[in-house]
Nucleic acid binder design. Structure first.
Lengths: 229, 229
DNA sequence: GCAAAAGTGTTTGGCATACACCCATGA
DNA sequence: TCATGGGTGTATGCCAAACACTTTTGC
């Protein structure tokens, strides 16, 4: 097989970043998507936010910039960690693009009203419905979710998705929505409290027509490695 | 501060791979190093094997090629997994180079006589003595060792460093040399055997002037995620 | 018989799991 | 008073951790 000819400026690999930006709203895991219109390959398509690296910025800086420019979310408030670098030769039909992909997490609470808004350019989609994405973004999303699932079981990563104050039930629901399993309420509480990563707050959350719930916060902002579940 | 001018062909990021190739010989963790001579920055220096991507190869293919060309080790026999992508703007003083770094593991047993040989071009060094490497390779090696340490505790990754047949004591020593801890012999045996990842062989290893040891092999070539230690 | 490494068992405590009912609140 | 989610304890079994001596072999 002969390689089809490519324009000279695309012959060598070009560096890009893509970002899987995740949040939780109402116990539902959401991912930020953007519209993709790149005829002839992608028309009225959707994908993950991303773009090329500038010559003098790191991949992580490029990620933050593209989230702002394309996803319209201020990523300086988000937690970002590198996920994987995708270098398949044909992952972009227009030319050779290698993508350094980041996983970004942000609590719904930290988003501004505008950032919560869905527009035709960029919007929040339930991860279960983020399918048929452009390029290799279906694969990237799958890798990101697998990593997220794995990491929350042995690190305190979930705190990057939780609001500052939350009840134990809300925390349990967050785990359940990511892991897609049911947890035992009593055992979950015993375990998570024994870890000592939570601090109780002096006030409770009332508002439902039921008993007020004790509020907690994470004792540290840091993501540390301890067996959580 | 003004950026120093750079030659035009280096203004955009160039893609490279570097590889941390690890083996174990005599219970000692070794890493493959190569000579680095890039005046004026690096003279008579040492570093990890690596190099630029060709336009039509993936990063992983480039890693295998560079291991052959520069480290003189046939990497098609090695286990390779992506480690991290380093994109600091100044990691290479000659220009903008982004490196996709791989962790590669190979049992000493699988190396040919030539591949075991040390030359001024490429050699095996105890990881404890691989210091003052060129570029950001000290940092890369540290990340690689941390990853290796972490992964062997919750996956069966160590089998990619073991010979086909080994005794339980040899396996225990492999864990100990990577983790830099002592393990309890009786507890280690109980645990590793209960996991069911090892299969006893019909023969024993004699040769010392002491009791012959039962030989084992890994039941599967695959690296799977189970709590090992 | 001795040096060297192989091989083996028990006790203890802590932790995971399974499981069901009462409590506080607002409507 | 009722509907709703908040909050709690116990019994069981498994597993991790600590710990020392006997066995087999070659010299």
């Amino acid at each position: 097989m002969q390689e089809p000819p490519r324009p000279e400026h695309l012959r060598f690999a070009v560096l890009a970043t893509d970002t899987v930006l995740i949040t939780i709203n109402n116990g539902e895991l959401l991912v930020r998507l953007v519209g993709v219109n790149r005829p002839p390959h992608f028309v009225d398509a959707k994908g993950l936010p991303g773009g090329l690296l500038h010559p003098h910025e790191t991949a992580e800086q490029a990620t933050v910039r593209h989230l702002t420019e394309k996803a319209h979310v201020d990523a300086s408030k988000a937690y970002i960690e590198q996920l994987y670098t995708f270098s398949n030769v044909d992952r972009d039909p227009r030319g050779r693009v290698v993508a350094v992909v980041y996983l970004a997490l942000i609590p719904w609470e930290k988003l501004s009203a505008i950032e919560k808004t869905d527009t035709p350019e960029s919007w929040w989609a339930p991860v279960t419905q983020a399918k048929k994405l452009a390029y290799d973004h279906d694969e990237i999303l799958a890798v990101a979710l697998a990593r997220l699932r794995s990491r929350i079981t042995y690190t305190t990563l979930i705190n990057k998705l939780m609001p500052r104050e939350f009840t134990l039930t809300e925390l349990e629901h967050a785990y359940e929505s990511i892991l897609k399993t049911d947890l035992d309420k009593r055992n979950f509480r015993k375990k998570i409290l024994k870890l000592g990563i939570l601090a109780p707050l002096p006030h409770k959350k009332s508002g439902g027509r039921f008993r007020p719930a004790q509020l907690y916060r994470f004792a540290s902002e840091k993501v540390t490695e301890i067996e959580v579940l």
